[in-house]
Design a protein around this nucleic acid. Structure first.
Length: 283
DNA sequence: ACAACCTCCTGGGGGC
DNA sequence: TGCCCCCAGGAGGTTG
């Protein structure tokens, strides 16, 4: 569920609480998420200081003083919530809400707090890598460029789309081609660029391509600015909702009018996933 | 190498 | 009200 803007929103919300904080305790309320937790997960985290909070694509990266990195993916329904450690020391058991799976107990720049990972569907997961091995870890070794970074432009994207017979919609969802986009922002970017989601990926010329890159970057920037999109699960770490969902032109708006040309927005299914687009102005 | 499908899991919404 | 079916911000794995 969370795409790049939602993960970036979470990162920005967590950073003031986590950066510089010491991990006092780690509570695991189950043995696994989508995958088992890394070996000795608790032992490797407790006592460490968090030096930096990063994001790569849809992954959150928690850098630790000992030189290792916690790699966290929110899957479809994962979220992080910051709680003041109001239960600590009061002899009370912390209240565990449904689907609170991991709790980082921190002593940080803002005092004691708990960072709670909640994930109803449990498609999210946590992993670890060394600082040095991070880029070559299984999650990142074959990953495409960061869409908001310097390494992303039309020539780069064009090369990655070369020979791809799939529709551009599917190609943009492929994290090996460009990393961080998901169903919402691909639909929105294609709409803004005026490109049909069904167009063969390799058939995008320079004019459309330049428009596409600009549209991807603009949509992501606007969504980050808005604190992401809150549909069902995403919220900022203080519980506040993002509001970019109100800015959707096509996503989940089948039957409504295209803001650009007034024709009706359509829903089709590509590779089992909904695509929303305007048949009038997307070619 | 690539593409099409299936799978993991829970919950919300619509139709009857 | 309840039940049943469909749908959901992802992506790893298997098949062809």
């Amino acid at each position: 569920m969370p795409e790049l803007p939602e993960v970036e929103t979470v990162r920005r919300g967590l950073a003031p609480f986590m950066t510089g904080a010491r991990i006092v305790d780690l509570r695991l309320n189950r043995e696994d998420l989508r995958f088992p937790f890394p070996k000795n997960f608790k032992k490797r985290l407790i006592g460490q200081t968090i030096t930096r909070l990063d994001r790569r694509a849809k992954y959150l990266l928690v850098h630790l003083s000992g030189g290792s990195v916690v790699i966290s993916h929110l899957g479809m329904s994962g979220r992080f919530v910051v709680e003041a450690a109001k239960y600590a020391g009061a002899g009370q058991k912390p209240r565990i809400l449904a689907h609170d799976h991991v709790v980082f107990c921190l002593n940080g720049p803002k005092g004691r707090c708990e960072i709670v990972y909640n994930d109803p569907r449990r498609f999210g997961f946590m992993d670890m890598a060394s600082e040095q091995g991070l880029a070559q870890s299984r999650h990142f070794a074959t990953m495409g460029p960061e869409p908001m970074g310097n390494g992303f432009n039309w020539p780069v994207l064009a090369e990655r789309l070369q020979g791809r017979k799939t529709a551009i919609k599917q190609a943009l969802l492929d994290q090996k081609i460009v990393a961080g986009l998901g169903n919402i922002y691909v639909c929105e970017a294609l709409w803004q660029a005026g490109i049909s989601p069904r167009r063969a990926a390799s058939s995008i010329g320079a004019v459309r391509g330049e428009r596409l890159v600009a549209a991807i970057q603009a949509i992501l920037a606007r969504a980050i600015e808005a604190g992401g999109s809150s549909l069902r699960d995403h919220a900022q770490v203080d519980g506040a909702l993002g509001y970019f969902q109100h800015g959707f032109a096509v996503y989940d708006r089948a039957g409504e009018d295209c803001p650009k040309c007034g024709k009706h927005v359509r829903r089709i299914v590509q590779s089992g996933r909904s695509t929303f687009f305007c048949g009038g102005c997307q070619r």
